[in-house]
């Protein structure tokens, strides 16, 4: 079994909704129901997403010892995608069009021909394989998803919901703030918060006044400004 990664990029999520306990058989059953299914020889499916265990990339087995690593639960998602090389479709299409006799095909006929070629070629294409590692911290209710790609994260969120019924909610600055245990007053402020320009717009005071004050101000007897400048 490959060791868990020691570096990488991750997105944090928290679990909303009930989950099976890590030691429950229900957890492994839920994973197995949504196990990865190969599209290697599939005639029409172009992508497949499902659970695999860290030690078996086929999705054929889920060994509890590989998954339950107290206090964490180690999980892995496999994402396969078949992409038909456009140039191959074009070569076959051109060849089919040359073989036809009579009037040129309509747009509809041309599309049907292209679809037929695609369905004929698709089973011969090997899918690209991708994995997303994740681990669940049941005590904190957090899941660390080792991808920062939007498509990868959404695929994992969808699979999670299909498997367990609960939702994986991505951690954002606002969401984390709401979970930080702030008091009522601060939560109200949080909702009304607007970004602060750290460089104030022209006309608004905010920069160090001593630097902005024209020397003439002090010379004209502006003692306050002069004193402020001396104090800096």
């Amino acid at each position: 079994m490959p060791r868990f990664r020691k570096s990488g990029s991750f997105t944090r999520c928290h679990v909303e909704g009930p989950m099976p306990k890590p030691g429950d058989e229900a957890l492994v059953v839920a994973l197995a129901k949504q196990r990865f299914r190969s599209i290697e020889n599939a005639a029409s499916e172009e992508h497949s997403v499902g659970w695999v265990s860290p030690g078996d990339a086929t999705g054929g087995s889920f060994l509890v010892d590989e998954i339950l690593l107290d206090p964490h639960v180690r999980l892995r998602v496999r994402l396969d995608r078949k992409r038909l090389p456009r140039v191959w479709v074009q070569i076959h299409l051109d060849s089919a069009l040359r073989a036809r006799e009579g009037r040129p095909p309509s747009a509809k006929e041309r599309k049907e021909l292209k679809d037929e070629i695609a369905s004929r070629l698709l089973p011969r294409v090997l899918p690209s394989v991708g994995f997303v590692d994740l681990f669940w911290d049941p005590k904190e209710g957090e899941v660390y998803v080792f991808t920062t790609s939007r498509a990868g994260l959404e695929a994992v969120q969808k699979l999670w919901h299909q498997s367990f019924g609960s939702r994986l909610v991505e951690t954002t600055p606002l969401e984390l703030a709401f979970r930080a245990g702030l008091g009522k007053e601060r939560l109200k402020r949080l909702e009304r918060l607007a970004p602060v320009p750290f460089v104030p717009p022209p006309g608004e005071t905010g920069r160090a006044p001593a630097r902005r004050a024209p020397p003439a101000a002090a010379a004209a007897g502006d003692e306050g400004a002069a004193a402020q400048e001396a104090g800096r």
Binding site: K6, S7, G8, S9, F10, T11, R12, T148, T172, P173
Partner: peptide, 10 residues
């Protein structure tokens, strides 16, 4: 913007 962690070395 997202508080996502990139290229983490532990």
């Amino acid at each position: 913007a997202t508080l996502a962690f990139g290229s983490v070395r532990c």
